[in-house]
Amino acid sequence: MEVVDPQQLGMFTEGELMSVGMDTFIHRIDSTEVIYQPRRKRAKLIGKYLMGDLLGEGSYGKVKEVLDSETLCRRAVKILKKKKLRRIPNGEANVKKEIQLLRRLRHKNVIQLVDVLYNEEKQKMYMVMEYCVCGMQEMLDSVPEKRFPVCQAHGYFCQLIDGLEYLHSQGIVHKDIKPGNLLLTTGGTLKISDLGVAEALHPFAADDTCRTSQGSPAFQPPEIANGLDTFSGFKVDIWSAGVTLYNITTGLYPFEGDNIYKLFENIGKGSYAIPGDCGPPLSDLLKGMLEYEPAKRFSIRQIRQHSWFRKKHPPAEAPVPIPPSPDTKDRWRSMTVVPYLEDLHGADEDEDLFDIEDDIIYTQDFTVPGQVPEEEASHNGQRRGLPKAVCMNGTEAAQLSTKSRAEGRAPNPARKACSASSKIRRLSACKQQ
């Protein structure tokens, strides 16, 4: 084909351009004929944790799935940006308080904090938690009735009371019990989460009196709706648990309003109706937990002794299953770290194939690490110290990083047969305790 000078094309009309061969290198194709290559998922490591896909996002930050490269346990990490926390009232204080509380709590029905990582340079905090497959609110939203069968609701409620009793025994008032803060594992274990607005009572406090509340409006008791200066913290949790039980068994809320002012007005009056299909035992329990006067409201001991709580409820309806993943529609909620794991395991070791967030990740503290002497050669063979940054567990980050890069360049065919977990650990520049 004859090559045409581009400067001469402006002298031709459209018809003349076609005659000189423009149609031979300008093609129009339908979008259905285009085959897009999927974007390669680059592996990203935060300390010893391999990052997966997004699980959810809230006002405080994002939650992603991660894999512990040492234990191969599935975890969830809450990623918090200090810049964003400053824009939220009491944001930083709530996060630090939640970390302090979770560090000393150990119960099967309370979410466990596994690790805390802090990135000084990017001003990011990573709260590594045990993995929960789904939230209770997500399960309720997945069915038209917006409720659980009585047998399933009873099982979840009993676990909620177990976890709540443990928190109260530790002198902690949750203040925000609701389905949105109750998570579930694949085995059906309920976990109380989000202790950001919780309050730890003084060890020598005479009672459970509280003065502040930041919980969700629909789950607040009349004493808070009416603006009382002080109130019983434990009875606030009992009320919120009662509203939660009402919601998961009926699909409704005892109090509603077009806006928060109308909602608080209705809560302050204390008038509500219980659907007739709840039955006398459940209705009596709800009335005891939603008692207007805090002094007359049920205690956890009274809830445990109630006939509806103690009764064994046979399954009359099919239980609400864990819904498919909202993004991938995966009904099994498979591990989202698998594509990243395959990338590390299947590809040659190259620095361009993975990302390490930083050479140094500070753990379990908000301060910069200490310094240790770096050896410097002298005339008599002895070495003197220069400062060298280290990880919180004493690992020399720069030395590990250099060693990792040197190993990656060394030709050794046997290394390709290593397991995925050992490869992740070798790529991680800074081991965590």
Rank of each mutant, 00 (worst) to 15 (best):
K62C: 11
V77T: 14
I29M: 05
I88S: 08
M136S: 01
Y246W: 07
V338T: 15
G370A: 08
L184V: 06
G279V: 04
M51H: 15
V116G: 02
L167I: 12
Y292G: 12
D350I: 09
P321A: 05
P323G: 07
Q159C: 05
C391S: 03
K269R: 08
G394A: 10
A205R: 09
E14F: 07
P280H: 08
P217W: 15
K312P: 11
N247C: 07
T186V: 09
N94W: 01
S193K: 01
E57A: 07
H154R: 06
H306G: 02
C430S: 14
L427A: 14
T367G: 15
V243N: 03
P275K: 12
K191F: 03
V337R: 03
M289G: 00
R87A: 01
T24R: 04
G196V: 07
C73V: 13
P326A: 04
I361V: 14
Y126F: 03
M11T: 09
P179T: 03
E57D: 05
E317C: 12
R87Y: 14
F264I: 03
H345A: 14
E317Y: 06
R86A: 09
Y126H: 03
T186R: 07
G385Q: 14
L290D: 00
L50D: 11
E376G: 08
K423D: 07
E145C: 11
P413R: 12
V4E: 07
P222C: 04
G47A: 11
V338D: 11
Q399A: 07
G135T: 15
Q112P: 09
I248W: 04
I267L: 03
C151M: 02
G279P: 08
V34S: 09
V372L: 11
G91F: 05
Y60R: 13
D229K: 03
S421R: 12
L386W: 07
L344K: 14
Q220Y: 10
G346C: 08
G52F: 15
M392N: 03
Q305H: 06
H379D: 08
R28V: 06
V63I: 12
P369A: 11
G394P: 13
E98A: 02
F219I: 10
R147W: 04
V4D: 12
E199H: 11
L45C: 06
S334E: 13
R106E: 15
V34G: 07
D284W: 03
G251V: 00
A406V: 13
T189V: 10
I161Y: 01
Y126L: 02
K403H: 13
P321Y: 03
Y49P: 01
N94A: 01
C158S: 03
Y340C: 15
D330V: 12
I274N: 09
R310F: 10
M139T: 08
Q371R: 13
K146V: 01
I35A: 11
K81S: 05
L341C: 11
P373N: 14
H379I: 13
T13S: 01
H202D: 04
E120R: 04
D365P: 14
L67P: 01
I248C: 06
G10F: 14
G288C: 06
F231T: 15
L45W: 15
Y118R: 06
S307G: 03
I248H: 00
V150T: 02
I267V: 07
E199L: 05
F255V: 07
K312C: 08
L183S: 03
P319A: 11
S240L: 03
T250H: 15
K269A: 05
L341R: 08
L344C: 07
G242R: 00
E291P: 01
F298R: 02
S422C: 12
I424Y: 07
W332Q: 13
D30A: 15
L117Y: 13
P294N: 02
A200S: 03
F264V: 03
N226G: 09
D359M: 14
C151P: 02
Q100L: 04
G163Y: 00
K82D: 08
N380A: 13
T336A: 13
E374L: 08
I303C: 02
R409T: 12
D115E: 09
E65F: 08
A417L: 13
E121T: 07
D176F: 00
F204G: 10
R425N: 15
I260E: 00
R106H: 15
N109P: 00
E70R: 15
L167G: 01
P324R: 08
Q371M: 12
D141L: 15
I99F: 15
A377G: 06
R333I: 12
Y246V: 05
G47R: 10
E165Y: 09
I267T: 07
R104I: 09
S169H: 12
M289R: 00
T209A: 08
A273V: 03
S169R: 05
V173W: 02
L113W: 01
P280K: 15
E130L: 01
L386N: 02
L55I: 11
R104K: 10
D330C: 10
S232P: 05
S169Y: 13
G242F: 00
G408W: 12
Y126M: 03
T328W: 14
E342Y: 11
A206R: 15
K178R: 03
V133Y: 14
G288E: 12
E121N: 14
C151R: 06
N393R: 06
Q432R: 14
D207V: 07
R426C: 07
S422K: 13
Q371W: 03
D207P: 06
Y118L: 03
G270N: 11
F309D: 00
K146A: 09
S378W: 04
S232A: 06
C132A: 12
G276P: 08
Y362A: 11
V116N: 05
G242V: 00
L140V: 05
L117T: 04
K122D: 13
I111V: 05
D330R: 12
F366M: 12
G187A: 07
M22A: 08
A206W: 01
D258S: 11
Q220R: 04
F204A: 06
Y166T: 07
P179L: 02
Y292W: 03
A316R: 05
K403F: 08
E291K: 09
L113I: 01
K416P: 15
Q159I: 02
D277V: 09
Y272A: 10
D258V: 11
L72V: 08
L167F: 06
T32G: 12
S421Y: 15
K191C: 01
M129F: 06
R384H: 12
G408E: 13
L101Q: 05
C418D: 14
A347I: 13
P89I: 11
H107V: 01
N380M: 13
V110P: 02
D30C: 12
A200R: 04
C73I: 03
L102M: 04
Y126C: 02
L195T: 15
E357C: 11
